[in-house]
Design a protein around this nucleic acid. Structure first.
Lengths: 205, 205
DNA sequence: TGTACATCAGTGAACGCGCGTTCACTGATGTAC
DNA sequence: TGTACATCAGTGAACGCGCGTTCACTGATGTAC
């Protein structure tokens, strides 16, 4: 590790961490390069030793988020195996857990207006995350009679949409909507009803 | 109408319209008071004749959005009557249609970080919009056996979350996720499966 | 072990910019007589 | 109809601010001899 014991030690990661903290606290537009540099105890100009500029810093934060996200999803999937249903439900829960535990990353990834196609590297890791969700959906779809089986990509999209919606509307305080349900409970019941609609779990459980 | 034929005629609304256009084009943080004034053909200082400041302008744009939103939802509900199911499905479709036809309003309402409790007036009209959705859910819940009937507020939250998720993830181009389904189709099928899960529509339709 | 040198992470000053906001003003419109 | 006046929507100049970015520099670290 050649970057040990230099002037700062590990400024690059310190900047990413500061950026994540700022994004979490003040939203994607509240983040500024200067403030991140300040929090890392460094001059704004120092940032340019490690990043091409402001957008590049956000992109790196998002990239790290996608890596964690993909790992977390994969882990949930694996732990649900060999049951397709358990894997599928676990990925749904993991989605929400990720949003709660890594709000800075989540915002950088999904609310910063950042395009996933910004760099090939970013696109790649985002694709890996999506692949896990779609694999879980694909596995599960095998349990539906082929003639009335919706495309796996479709119901992975449904679950993703509901998860994302729950996060945006109810796991943040933004629109001031105080619904008397915990986000976890909402997502759990929502996906439960949805899966029942697919005939994948018993109708009177 | 005393504000007709003045210097500008109807600057206040012109500013709101400009703000909506900017928000739609460049996101909630891309909007600036100065640019909105410029687009309305007016000096930035003129804005202060009609608004307390930048945030007040956004709040007014959001307020107008909630008014339209509530009207549109109410309309959909009414046209679905007397069928509880038709009303419910219509409000779901209306949600997506609103997001598509009034993207500026939608963003100002749900993505600008604006709190609905900013002013009593805003809170009031937002509550009216929510009341329609919850009424539709309440009607529908009457058709579920009471002993296994989930709270109406819960499944209105489910449908709202899925609608919002579809809008955010698939009705915009942001995350570069090119799913081979139209947002309308995704929402339609998603809600269909969900309602089947509630036992509200036949399992093999 | 000690000295000379190369590297390069971080500095500090400066830049041009657009922002939101203020202020005294101006001049078109509406109103009183 | 015509004149004097009041109103007040919009002007234009100015402000202080923080932003992202640049540049020549400095000085701590690592390396060659």
């Amino acid at each position: 590790m050649p970057k040990q014991g230099y002037h700062h030690g590990n400024l690059k990661q310190a900047l990413v961490d500061a950026a994540l903290r700022l994004i979490e606290a003040k939203g994607p537009s509240g983040f500024t390069l200067s403030e991140a540099a300040k929090q890392a105890g460094v001059t704004p100009a120092a940032v340019y030793r490690h990043f091409a500029g402001r957008d590049d810093l956000i992109a790196e934060a998002a990239r790290q988020g996608y890596v964690i996200f993909a790992d977390v999803m994969q882990d949930a999937y694996d732990r649900g195996q060999p049951s397709a249903l358990a894997s599928f439900e676990a990925t749904g829960r993991a989605y929400l857990a990720f949003a709660r535990h890594y709000p800075g990353h989540y915002i950088a990834m999904f609310e910063s207006g950042l395009s996933v196609n910004r760099t090939p590297e970013l696109a790649l890791v985002a694709r890996r995350a999506r692949a896990v969700i779609e694999q879980a959906a694909e596995d599960l779809s095998q349990h539906i009679p082929p003639d009335r089986r919706p495309p796996a990509a479709m119901f992975s999209a449904h679950v993703w949409a509901m998860s994302h919606g729950v996060v945006e509307l109810f796991a943040r305080n933004s629109p001031g909507t105080a619904v008397p349900f915990a986000p976890e409970e909402l997502l759990e019941t929502g996906i439960g009803i949805y899966l029942r609609g697919l005939g994948l779990i018993a109708p009177d459980t």
